[in-house]
Amino acid sequence: MNEIRNIYCVGRNYRLHAEELGNAVPTSPFLFSKPTHALVEANGQLIELPGNKGEVHYEAEVVLHIARPYEPGMKIEEAVDKMALGIDFTLRDVQSELKKKSHPWLKAKGFPNSAVLTSFHPFPGMIACQETDFSLVKNGETVQQGNTRDMLFDMQTIVEFTAEHFGLGSGDIIYTGTPAGVGPVADGDKLELLFGIERWGECVISLK
């Protein structure tokens, strides 16, 4: 975790997720960021989240790790060395109020422990990644399941766009967007992140 630098997140990158929240489907990648204080590894422990700011929603995602500074024309397999699964936790009620005021989302997205991350695994390549679904299991029930082939903007496009507009270097990570099925967590919920049938990480929620 210590070597991670910038945390980029792609919003509304699955059509059904954008529609389930009543958002317009974007025509170009839509990015926001989180501070590194938001990072926490899902290694089976209790993860504390705010319990006094309205609903806290889970958003499971594939996360890319950048191995080297991006150069124009670089293929994603040259830039990305490993991947993980993550949860972009969101204070949904706070976010709704911020949207009404046309304010940035940082208070709803950047709080401590809002960027959950599993252990990293070798990146198999963009096409090979599409052969396997990823999922979030809550208290034994699958609540989200997705596949990167359903992204509005594929991994190559995301990497190129991020590099062009913000810069992309060694140690940066990109949360690539969440499929439909987001919802609230409750105190004591057990969350498991799976790639195919492999459990990559898990945690238990503590709302404080």
Rank of each mutant, 00 (worst) to 15 (best):
L117A: 04
C9V: 09
E192P: 06
I4G: 13
R92K: 15
Y8S: 07
E192S: 09
Q145Y: 00
T142Q: 13
R12K: 14
P29C: 08
G177Y: 06
G140L: 05
P179C: 00
D93Q: 13
A67C: 02
D187K: 03
R149N: 01
P122S: 09
G44E: 09
M155G: 10
E19N: 02
L16N: 06
D88C: 12
P184W: 09
Y58E: 06
I87C: 08
A79K: 08
L31S: 04
L168D: 08
T176V: 04
Q144E: 03
E61N: 01
F195I: 01
A163P: 01
K82W: 03
P50L: 07
K101V: 13
P69G: 05
R5P: 01
G86Q: 03
F153D: 02
R199S: 06
K208D: 08
R199I: 03
K53P: 04
A115P: 13
S135A: 11
E78Q: 12
S33L: 12
Q145C: 04
L191W: 09
L39S: 06
S135N: 00
N23M: 13
S206G: 14
V62F: 07
V80D: 11
F161S: 13
T27Y: 07
R68H: 15
T142D: 00
P26Q: 10
H165R: 15
E55N: 10
G140M: 09
D81Y: 03
K100F: 09
V56H: 15
L193S: 03
Y70E: 12
R5C: 04
A42N: 11
E20I: 02
L49K: 14
I66R: 14
G183Q: 06
T176A: 07
T162Y: 05
S119G: 07
T118D: 03
E19Q: 14
I76T: 14
E141F: 06
L46H: 14
K99S: 10
L168C: 05
R15Y: 01
M74I: 05
V56Y: 14
Q144D: 03
Y8A: 08
P50S: 11
C9H: 04
V40L: 15
Q95F: 08
A186K: 13
E71Q: 15
T90V: 13
N6D: 09
D81I: 02
I174W: 07
G73Q: 08
I7S: 10
P184M: 09
V137T: 07
E131M: 07
F120Y: 11
L117P: 10
L39M: 06
N43R: 14
I7A: 09
F30A: 13
Q145G: 00
K99D: 11
M126R: 11
S114N: 12
P69L: 07
T36E: 13
K75W: 03
A115R: 07
V204C: 11
S102D: 10
E192K: 10
Y175L: 14
E77M: 02
E55P: 03
G188Y: 01
A180M: 04
G183A: 05
A24Q: 15
G140D: 08
P26N: 08
K53G: 06
E164Y: 09
V56I: 15
W200R: 01
L152G: 02
G167Q: 09
H65D: 07
H103C: 10
L193H: 05
Y70W: 15
A186Q: 15
A60C: 13
L136V: 01
E19F: 04
Y8F: 15
L98A: 12
Q156S: 06
G11H: 08
V63L: 10
K138I: 12
